[in-house]
Simulated assay, not measured.
Amino acid sequence: MKKILLLCSAGMSTSIIVKKMLEAADKKGLEVEIKAMGLEMFQENLGNYDIFLLGPQVKFKRDELNKIAQENGKRVEVINPMDYGMMKGDKILEFALNLID
Rank of each mutant, 00 (worst) to 15 (best):
Q57H: 15
D26W: 05
Q57F: 13
K19L: 06
I100C: 01
L53I: 13
A24K: 02
K35S: 15
L93Q: 00
I92K: 00
N66T: 08
I34H: 06
V18R: 01
L39T: 12
Q70G: 04
P56V: 11
E77I: 10
A10G: 15
E64A: 06
A69S: 09
K28C: 03
I68V: 15
M21D: 06
G85A: 14
F52W: 07
M41S: 11
M1I: 09
K67F: 07
E23Q: 08
L7H: 06
M87N: 12
D83S: 14
S9I: 03
K74H: 09
P81K: 14
E33K: 15
I92R: 00
M86T: 15
N66Q: 07
I17L: 15
G89N: 02
V78I: 15
K91G: 00
F42P: 01
F52T: 04
K59H: 11
G47E: 14
G38M: 12
L30W: 06
G55D: 13
K91A: 09
F95K: 04
E94Q: 08
F60D: 13
G73R: 15
D63L: 09
Q43L: 11
F42C: 07
L99Y: 05
L22V: 08
F60N: 14
R62Y: 10
A96M: 03
E94I: 03
S9L: 12
V18F: 01
G29D: 09
S15F: 02
L93H: 00
M86R: 15
D63P: 03
K88M: 06
M41F: 14
A10P: 06
I100Q: 02
F42A: 05
C8N: 11
V76Q: 04
Q43T: 10
N80C: 14
V18H: 02
V76G: 09
I68H: 10
N98E: 15
N45T: 11
A96S: 10
K27M: 07
V78Y: 08
L99V: 02
L6Q: 07
F95S: 00
G11A: 02
S9T: 14
L93P: 00
L93M: 03
L30M: 12
K61Q: 12
I51W: 07
V76P: 01
G11Y: 01
K67P: 05
M37A: 13
E94N: 09
C8S: 14
F95V: 02
L46F: 10
D26R: 12
A10T: 15
A24Y: 04
K59N: 11
A69Q: 12
I34K: 04
L46P: 06
A25M: 02
